[in-house]
């Protein structure tokens, strides 16, 4: 799919009407194309604002008046082919509605304004509560979209895109198991040190999830990069989990351990005791 066809599908995507078959390709493209992603984020923000507005529905009278006018226009055309423009008819019609005397005109304007303000107030009172739930719902949808984008970015071949995936993950309010697992996978298996370092930082934000603590402690023995080990040790000391003590003790025993990491781990043990 090209960017043009993807963008045509945005509205369907936001309303959840995109055919299931196109969904995977759609998400794949989003993951690989930052321009489309930005567009979609912008659009979903507008969507959020639109969702808050009360729905406007024309009154029945407007409908009948419009059709009446249209009939009159058609008749006029049919009879003598008198060339009267629609604009002229409209202005005539509006002119007839408008009172002749300025005093009445002002009065009418005031009445209309009061009616507008009053109905606006009423509507806002009624819609405030529904708007709130709608905004919450939309926020949830944005979160869900971020989750999808983050997970697919984390699987890209380019390390810079994977970094972007980590930073998208960090922006998610409720990460859920999928994101936590994807971040832990990145921490343990990503080929690039910088991406693993970023994963440590992102996971730190979610450490109140039980599987994150466990995953971080477990990961300590798997890291080959001294810098990542350092970063993990600082983090484990920070979250003060007793189980980290055991992992640190095991790490210190490792003969091949970088001496600086060893020193840091020993300091960490003192801090934890």
């Amino acid at each position: 799919m090209t960017c043009v066809t993807i963008r045509e599908g945005f509205v369907d995507y936001l309303t959840g009407e995109l055919p299931a078959g196109d969904l995977a390709e759609f998400r794949g493209h989003l993951a690989s194309c930052p321009a489309c992603r930005e567009e979609l984020e912008g659009l979903s923000a507008v969507w959020t604002k639109l969702g808050v507005l009360p729905q406007e529905s024309p009154s029945g009278a407007l409908r009948s008046r419009f059709y009446g006018m249209l009939e009159a226009y058609k008749e006029g055309l049919g009879k003598e082919r008198v060339r009267i423009s629609l604009g002229q008819i409209l202005s005539d019609w509006l002119g007839r509605l408008m009172p002749r005397r300025p005093a009445y005109q002002i009065a009418l304007a005031l009445v209309l304004m009061a009616a507008g303000l009053g109905s606006g107030y009423l509507m806002s009172v009624r819609s405030r509560s529904t708007a709130r739930t709608e905004v919450a719902g939309l926020r949830g949808e944005v979160d869900a979209m971020r989750r999808i984008v983050a997970v697919s970015l984390l699987k890209q071949a380019s390390p810079s895109e994977r970094l972007l995936g980590v930073s998208w993950s960090a922006r998610i309010d409720r990460p859920g198991e999928e994101i936590i697992q994807a971040l832990l996978d990145t921490l343990n298996h990503d080929a690039n040190v910088n991406v693993r370092l970023a994963a440590v930082d992102a996971l730190y934000l979610f450490y109140n999830h039980p599987e994150v603590k466990e995953g971080l402690i477990d990961s300590l023995s798997r890291q080959s990069s001294a810098l990542v080990q350092m970063s993990l040790i600082s983090l484990l000391v920070e979250i003060r989990d007793r189980r980290a003590v055991e992992a640190l003790e095991r790490l210190v025993q490792d003969e091949k351990l970088n001496p600086k990491v060893k020193k840091r781990a020993e300091l960490g043990l003192v801090q934890l005791s």
Partner: peptide
């Protein structure tokens, strides 16, 4: 603009 960068060094 766009893609993030990252540089890391131990010592």
């Amino acid at each position: 603009p766009g893609k993030p960068m990252s540089l890391s060094a131990m010592d």
